[in-house]
Simulated scan of single mutants.
Amino acid sequence: MELQAWQNLTDEHRYRYSEELAAHLPQSVIFRGLQLYRYGGPELSIAIFEYGGALFSLMPGGEVQIGCEARNFRPTDEQIESFQKSAEEYGIDLDICSYVQSVTTPPRKVTFSPMLVEIQPTKIGLEASSSESLKIQNILK
């Protein structure tokens, strides 16, 4: 399903499509419904799925532009000031515009396949430890 096709569907058709998709996924993937989403543009209904307690959204595929035209970047005074503080702290010897140009890739169009994308962060086996613990002390030796 490409984004344009998804946007052209009614919510009723999106719902049915999502139910059919869930029926073709492993049995433990559950379609939870549609949710209205807005981010800097028009509203869009997104399909929400659950798998193993984690929530996922259907990301329709299609062509998108990625990358950055760094030569057109015009930082605000606040961005320049913030970057200068960070540059001093981390030993970066470039001005903000040169840095942005060095770490970005040029604009280009790519095509993505539809996918399910997790929508909430998940802890993956990390645990808090005190520097006083014997385990940490043994590592530091």
Rank of each mutant, 00 (worst) to 15 (best):
L55K: 04
L94Y: 06
Q79R: 07
R71G: 13
Q79C: 05
Y99N: 10
A87K: 04
N72A: 11
Y90N: 15
G67T: 08
F56R: 01
E63A: 13
S57V: 09
I48Q: 03
A54R: 12
G91C: 12
E78Q: 10
C97Y: 01
R74D: 10
L58D: 00
S82W: 02
G61K: 11
G61Y: 13
F73V: 14
I96L: 01
S86V: 06
E50G: 07
A54K: 10
E81H: 08
E88F: 05
Q84W: 10
F56Q: 02
F83N: 07
N72S: 10
I92R: 09
I48C: 03
D93R: 13
E78I: 06
M59L: 14
E63D: 09
I96T: 00
V64W: 11
Y51W: 07
G91Q: 14
E69K: 15
L94T: 03
F56M: 04
F83V: 05
Q79M: 11
Q84R: 14
I80T: 12
F73N: 14
N72F: 05
I48W: 00
Y51D: 01
I92L: 12
S57N: 04
D93N: 14
P60S: 13
A87Y: 01
A54F: 03
E88S: 08
A54C: 10
D95C: 01
G53S: 09
C68L: 15
G53P: 06
D95N: 06
E63F: 09
Q79W: 02
F56C: 03
Y51Q: 03
D95Q: 00
C68Q: 12
E63Q: 13
K85Q: 15
I96V: 01
R71C: 10
I92T: 08
E89P: 04
Q65F: 11
A70E: 07
E78N: 09
A87R: 02
A87V: 00
E78M: 08
Y90G: 14
N72C: 02
S57L: 02
D77E: 15
E69C: 13
C97V: 11
I66M: 09
A54G: 11
